[in-house]
């Protein structure tokens, strides 16, 4: 496990020394700051708007950072041949894949934690309150992050960064739409499309399972079983994708 941690630590270091990372974080913080302005133009809903907007901004920028890092870092390792000096050491390919995965996840999580901390401080300064649902929403985003990171890692070693970023983004969009798509096909009885809707539903991750943002400011919380199911689902789906990545990397020539 020490080698996985070493590769993960190196990945985190690579991320935090990349200027693009700070540019994305800067824009996220800027959007959080701007959220107050949006709050002012809404009638007596300023804190609610501020929370919704800021959480959406954190979600968007963490997604962008995850896609950017996930699709470029492994590709760069292969393209720049730094992977040669790793695999030639006493390192199994599974250790490389897991190290990269946990490194990317740790970097994106740190980034999300940083943005959330800025948001909470800003919220308190602006007179808003911090409730448990806010942390639950962030936890849900973390589960989504686990899934998206495993998708980006799978494709980053197979294709170019642009294409793998596109595929990962498609996973994100479809992941938030699979439930709606299936219900839509069922409701309007598009019988010919049902098999396709079902295939998409089972093939793509259902990211709405991890979406707890609707509880922020509502005064309610989901049942514990729902949260546990979401965590198990995200962990299971991510593990399956990492498993596929491991099989591909085991056979791959670099």
């Amino acid at each position: 496990m020490g080698k996985v941690i070493a590769i993960a630590g190196n990945t985190v270091r690579e991320v935090v020394r990349d200027k693009v990372f700070y540019i994305l974080v800067f824009f996220a913080v800027l959007l959080i700051a701007v959220s107050k302005a949006l709050g002012w133009i809404s009638m007596e809903q300023d804190v609610k708007v501020m929370k919704d907007f800021s959480i959406a901004a954190i979600n968007l920028f963490v997604l962008l950072i995850t896609i950017f890092l996930g699709t470029t870092l492994v590709y760069k390792e292969i393209d720049k041949r730094t992977i040669y000096t790793i695999l030639s050491k006493d390192v199994g390919r599974w250790q490389f894949v897991l190290g990269k995965y946990f490194g990317l996840l740790a970097a994106a999580s740190m980034c999300m934690a940083g943005m959330t901390a800025v948001f909470i401080v800003y919220l308190l300064v602006m007179g808003g309150g911090v409730e448990a649902s806010l942390f639950l929403a962030v936890g849900g985003m973390l589960l989504e992050l686990m899934l998206i990171t495993s998708v980006s890692l799978l494709f980053s070693g197979l294709t170019s960064p642009v294409l793998s970023a596109f595929i990962t983004f498609c996973f994100f969009l479809l992941g938030h739409s699979v439930e709606v798509l299936r219900k839509f096909v069922e409701e309007f009885e598009f019988q010919g499309l049902e098999p396709m809707a079902n295939a998409i539903y089972y093939l793509f991750p259902n990211l709405e399972n991890c979406n707890f943002k609707m509880y922020v400011g509502s005064g309610t919380l989901p049942e514990a079983a729902h949260v546990l199911w979401a965590a198990a689902y995200a962990a299971g789906y991510s593990a399956a994708l990492i498993g596929i990545t491991l099989v591909i990397y085991r056979r791959k020539d670099f």
Binding site: N10, R13, R17, D18, R81, T82, Y84, T85, S88
Partner: peptide
Amino acid sequence: GYLPEESYYYNYL
């Protein structure tokens, strides 16, 4: 120990 041809390393370290 291995030295690859045209070796690249992590520039940020």
